[in-house]
Amino acid sequence: MKLQDSVIAVTGAGQGLGRAMAEYLAARGARLALIDLVPEKLETAAIACREAGGDSRIYVCNVAREDEVDATFAAIARDFGALNGVINNAGILRDGLLIKTKDGEITQRMELAQWQAVIDVNLTGVFLCGRAAASQMIALGNGGVIINIASISRAGNMGQSNYSAAKAGVSALVPVWAKELARYGIRCMGIAPGFIETDMVASMKPEALEKMTAGIPLKRMGQPEEIAQTAAFIFENEYLSGRMIEVDGGLRL
């Protein structure tokens, strides 16, 4: 798929990896449909995409709401007249241990609300957006590419029962959708980033960052642009489908 003039939707596009991927694709001539919950951040991202050289429009949407997702993707297809790709990137964190104890007594458990919030956005949101995007691609008859953003936490990470389960689910959807949607000319791939230098990571304590970086074989965190490069590679390589690409500096060798 050529990026020039392709219509690509990005969820969680207002900041972090979502915005980085959107700007990178815009610089290569893609037309971006930016999806997020915060209008102000979307506006800033849209300006950055236009300055990078790509057309962009914003869509305020809660990816965990079926009605909002379906309406948003219908609007994208109507506004642009096409939908060639989607990056399912939106996600949240609600970290916590399953059980926490002190002196042999249980002091805290992961709350159902912590679990459900992450599953709703990080897994159900991917399902809803993937389904809506595929529906529009099929209706438009132009095929397309679905990219699910997972995480190396999909293999299990302490303190992240909810996040790890959601990202494992997101990864499992990749081969399923690749097999089901190939007949419509739709490919599906996934990216599992390791520790990436986003604003959220940069706000961590220096000692925590140092410890985290020391465990990476390449001895540095990844850059958002390196995830964006991977997404662009997936879009452009027509024989990639049904696989996860881990971009983690060798952390999970």
Rank of each mutant, 00 (worst) to 15 (best):
D95A: 14
L97K: 11
L98I: 14
L98E: 02
L98W: 01
I99W: 10
I99S: 02
I99L: 15
T101P: 01
T101Y: 09
T101M: 13
T101S: 14
K102S: 13
K102Y: 12
D103H: 10
D103C: 05
G104T: 11
G104V: 10
G104D: 06
E105H: 13
E105T: 12
I106R: 06
I106W: 08
Q108E: 15
M110N: 07
M110I: 14
M110R: 12
M110Q: 14
E111P: 02
E111M: 13
A113S: 15
A113E: 15
Q114A: 10
Q114V: 02
W115K: 01
Q116K: 13
A117D: 14
A117F: 00
V118C: 11
V118I: 02
V118Q: 04
I119W: 03
D120C: 11
D120H: 09
V121R: 00
N122L: 10
N122H: 08
N122V: 09
T124G: 07
G125S: 01
V126R: 00
V126M: 07
F127H: 09
F127M: 14
L128S: 05
L128W: 00
C129M: 04
C129G: 06
R131M: 12
A133Q: 02
A133C: 10
A134S: 15
S135M: 12
S135T: 15
Q136W: 00
Q136P: 02
M137E: 03
M137Y: 00
I138W: 06
A139C: 07
L140H: 01
L140E: 01
L140P: 10
L140I: 07
G141L: 05
N142S: 14
V145P: 01
N148P: 12
I149D: 01
I149N: 05
A150Y: 03
A150L: 00
I152G: 03
I152L: 12
I152T: 14
S153T: 12
G156M: 01
G156N: 01
G156W: 08
N157E: 14
M158N: 09
G159H: 09
Q160C: 10
Q160V: 06
S161V: 15
S161R: 02
N162A: 15
N162Q: 11
S164G: 09
A165C: 09
A165K: 09
A165G: 04
A166M: 08
A166P: 12
A168W: 07
V170I: 04
S171W: 14
A172S: 15
L173G: 05
L173T: 00
V174Y: 03
V174K: 07
W177M: 14
A178R: 03
A178K: 06
K179L: 12
E180Q: 15
L181M: 12
